[in-house]
Design a protein around this nucleic acid. Structure first.
Lengths: 342, 342
DNA sequence: GTGAAAGCGCTAACAT
DNA sequence: ATGTTAGCGCTTTCAC
């Protein structure tokens, strides 16, 4: 079962291969008569140009790589989906790479990417530094999601975690909280750094109480947050509200509160950060930030597509705002009776 | 900045391009002397064969498509990851396609896949029928995950949901439950059908009580399960235990129980089905089945790889067992005092 | 053991 | 407006 080639079509339509190619790629350049004959033949033979041969000539494969730390993570998956959909729209394939949140692996991908049949690459943050994207940016269109580095010809899309954290903090503040802690992970990505900056700025601006242990780092896991929350609850200056770095971690933190015989939000208010699927069903439903993951993926894809069209477009850095989603886990205004509000 | 080609290497090593190719692909066929010279030149020039040119000759692109209903779903993501890792191991790229759980979209992919620079395709179940994979199986290595259909030359990997459901049902039965209901989604995939079959077989074998409304279908969502659970709780013959089709849906069901002023597991036992991330932190932690998602992805990839090596290997159907994970949501033996066991 | 050359399927520059 | 042909980078006969 051999595939139909341009030659077969040429023979069938009694024209040269060049004419077939033209009829397909630049219809105006061929007389309506012949064109119709060619198109007819194409249809009859069910001809579809071989993308590999096209790629060999054009040096473009119409595929974009997306490198994520872990496709199993809901946020990464949403970004991937956003990118995929935008790319598919333009006839591009999405080639998936898992970095396992490992910088070696990312370095490795930078090595092989130029020979991996992709025209560009979207790098989604891992926690360990930044791979040498400058090296590949000459040959590939590159866009970074959620990293902040200074490189030429590399577009960037980031979420405004700094502002996001302050959205949460000020919300808690307005509710009457003045001892607000922040649980984060040990690995400080640039996104994490932005959260920390937001937190510190908030403390400075408000002049609120701040203890050494109010920023507390543990494993980036539910269990890590569980331990961190336990520590906070056991401390002398127990906070009245805690912002947890991710919703998944918040699940662990909520567990810790329960296991200590305390109640959220009555005894302590808790917020998450990234609106993980299911967080509206947590016990209690979690106040959190809505991340524009899907949009970030789309924007990254668009940036890539633009750079592919014109490699010299100015480097763009897009920072997207986060939206607060208020649910029961941070309760109501302190000092008011909220018993009827449940 | 032009790429280094085989010609450059040939010139540098003072041999013909044929010899370079041989030195790389069939080292034994060339004298050690020349081989070393070639390899040296390859190293110096940092040469890497162009995969597109290789593809054009060999008619193989070393890429496999994976078509999932929704990469955002944790189960799909895990399968994807399993497949990706196995494929990467063998130097294959993973090209991602989202079907949006839409049969039209799947049909469309079947149309374009033969011209999409992939050597094979892994189809992960959508709920609406089966796409015409037979048509593409001649040119592409195909493996289906979680569908059961009779086709030639198409490998299959499925989870044993029938046995899985019975694992849960018998467990509840042993705990003393005799009114066991099953909440599922409206769209009946073959996987869902297997669950239903398992449920019916269980009822038949045990001769347990069965009411018309003990199999209840709603939306495949948390909210759908919420409604379904509400209905069960309001019914005259209220079940003492409920198996919910997915963990995510179970989250909605647990909510419904709480909102009715009842307690899990004291008033009603609840189980999930697919060990979604976080289900150990649900309130209460959810008894569920561990799905071998990652393994399924890996096995599908392996099947593809095998078929690529030898297109005539016998069609294989692999059915993987599910493991039960017991947590608090189904409580302890009825009639015993479990108050100290918490 | 090595080189020359054909050819994979396509596009585009050059001829007519 | 259409045909002829070179060439993209590689592998693989076929000669020597």
């Amino acid at each position: 079962m051999k595939r139909t080639t341009i030659k077969d079509v040429a023979k069938e339509a009694k024209v040269s291969v060049a004419t077939v190619s033209r009829a397909l790629n630049d219809p105006e350049a061929v007389k309506k008569d012949t064109r119709d004959r060619v198109l007819e033949a194409v249809k009859n033979l069910n001809y579809d140009p071989d993308p590999i041969a096209q790629a060999l000539r054009s040096n473009s494969v119409k595929s974009i790589a997306i490198i994520v730390p872990n496709i199993t993570n809901a946020i990464m998956a949403e970004m991937t989906r956003g990118a995929h959909e935008k790319l598919a729209e333009k006839g591009y394939n999405t080639v998936l790479f898992n970095s396992d949140d490992n910088i070696q692996q990312e370095n490795h991908y930078c090595e092989i990417l130029p020979n991996s049949m992709v025209d560009g690459a979207i790098f989604v943050t891992g926690s360990g530094g930044t791979p040498p994207v400058e090296k590949i940016a000459d040959n590939l269109a590159v866009c970074l999601i959620n990293r902040e580095i200074e490189v030429e010809n590399v577009d960037q899309v980031t979420a405004d975690e700094k502002e996001g954290l302050q959205l949460l903090a000020y919300h808690l503040h307005r509710l009457g909280h003045d001892k607000i802690a922040f649980i984060t992970g040990l690995d400080i990505t640039s996104a994490t750094q932005r959260k920390i900056n937001g937190y510190k700025e908030f403390i400075n601006k408000t002049g609120l109480d701040y203890k050494e242990n109010y920023i507390i780092s543990g494993q980036w896991t539910m269990n890590g947050a569980y331990m961190a929350m336990k520590e906070l609850l056991g401390s002398k200056e127990r906070p009245t509200a805690v912002i947890v770095g991710t919703d998944t971690m918040a699940l662990g933190a909520l567990s810790a509160v329960r296991d200590s015989g305390l109640k959220v939000p009555e005894d302590i208010a808790v917020t998450g950060f990234d609106n993980a699927p299911g967080s509206e069903y947590y016990q209690p439903p979690l106040t959190t930030l809505k991340y524009p993951n899907y949009e970030m993926g789309q924007l990254a894809a668009r940036a890539i597509l633009n750079r592919l069209k014109d490699p010299n477009v100015d480097k763009k850095s897009i920072k997207l705002p986060l939206d607060i989603t208020v649910r029961k886990s941070c309760g109501y205004r302190l000092g008011f009776d909220s018993s009827n509000n449940r």
